[in-house]
C-alpha cells in the first residue's frame, strides 16, 4: 500500500527539488480546486485557464521560497484561485456583456442601420410615388430636381450643364418643390413616414 504523504511534506519535498511531489499535489487536489473554480465561473475552458494560472502562482511562490507554512496548503491554493476568479470577473466587467431577457432587449438600443423589410418596402413605394410626381413637373424643373436629388450635382454644376445662372437653377428648384407639395395636396397623397 502506498504511503499517503501529508501535503506539508510534499510541499517541503517539492521546494527541495522533488518534481514528483508537485504532481501528487496537483492530482490530489485537482478535482477540488477545479470544481471550486467551476462553481464560480460555470465554464469549463475558463476553469482550465484559472486552474493553470493558480498553479503557476503556486509553483512560483514555492520555488522562490516565499511560501510560509502558516496555514494548510489547500486553503492557500483555494485562496489564490478565489482571487483569480475575482480578477476574471473584474476584467470581464470592463468589457460589458449584454444578455437579452424579458425586460431588456439589446436590439432595442442598437441596430445595424439598415431598414427592416417592411420599412424598406414603404421607402421603395414612396420613392416610386415621388418619381411619378416629378414626371408631372415642367421640364426645366424636372431637370433641376433630377440633377440635384438623383445625380447629387451642386447648383454650380447644374447651372454649367443647363446653361442658366445659379440663381435661376435655385429658383427652378424652389418652384419644383412648391409644385410637388401642391400636387401632393391636390391629390391627397399620403407619403408615410418611416
Amino acid at each position: 500500500m502506498e504511503l499517503q504523504l501529508d501535503d506539508s511534506v510534499l510541499v517541503k519535498n517539492y521546494i527541495q527539488g522533488d518534481e514528483k511531489s508537485l504532481e501528487i499535489l496537483i492530482n490530489r487536489h485537482n478535482q477540488r480546486i477545479s470544481s471550486f473554480i467551476y462553481s464560480k465561473v460555470l465554464n469549463q475552458s475558463i476553469t482550465e485557464d484559472i486552474f493553470q494560472d493558480t498553479f503557476i502562482k503556486v509553483i512560483r511562490t514555492l520555488r522562490k521560497g516565499s511560501y510560509s507554512e502558516e496555514g494548510k496548503f489547500l486553503p492557500w491554493v483555494l485562496r489564490i484561485a478565489h482571487n483569480l476568479v475575482i480578477d476574471h470577473f473584474r476584467k470581464n466587467r470592463r468589457l460589458p456583456k449584454f444578455e437579452c431577457n424579458e425586460n431588456f432587449n439589446i436590439f432595442s438600443v442598437i441596430g445595424d442601420g439598415k431598414l427592416n423589410a417592411e420599412k424598406q418596402l414603404i421607402k421603395d413605394q414612396i420613392d416610386f410615388d415621388i418619381q411619378l410626381l416629378i414626371e408631372q413637373l415642367p421640364d426645366d424643373q424636372k431637370e433641376v430636381i433630377s440633377m440635384r436629388m438623383y445625380k447629387d450635382m451642386s447648383f454650380k454644376e447644374i447651372s454649367e450643364n443647363t446653361g442658366v445662372s445659379i440663381n435661376t437653377a435655385l429658383g427652378r428648384m424652389r418652384y419644383a418643390l412648391i409644385n410637388l407639395r401642391k400636387l401632393i395636396e391636390t391629390h391627397n397623397i399620403v407619403l408615410t413616414n418611416y
Partner: peptide, 20 residues
C-alpha cells in the same frame, strides 16, 4: 458539479515547473 482539469493542463504545469 465535480470536474477536473485536463491531463494536458496538469502536464503543462509539470513541464513549466521543470523548466523554471
Amino acid at each position: 458539479e465535480l470536474i477536473k482539469a485536463q491531463p494536458e493542463t496538469v502536464q503543462f504545469l509539470l513541464n513549466y515547473s521543470k523548466s523554471m
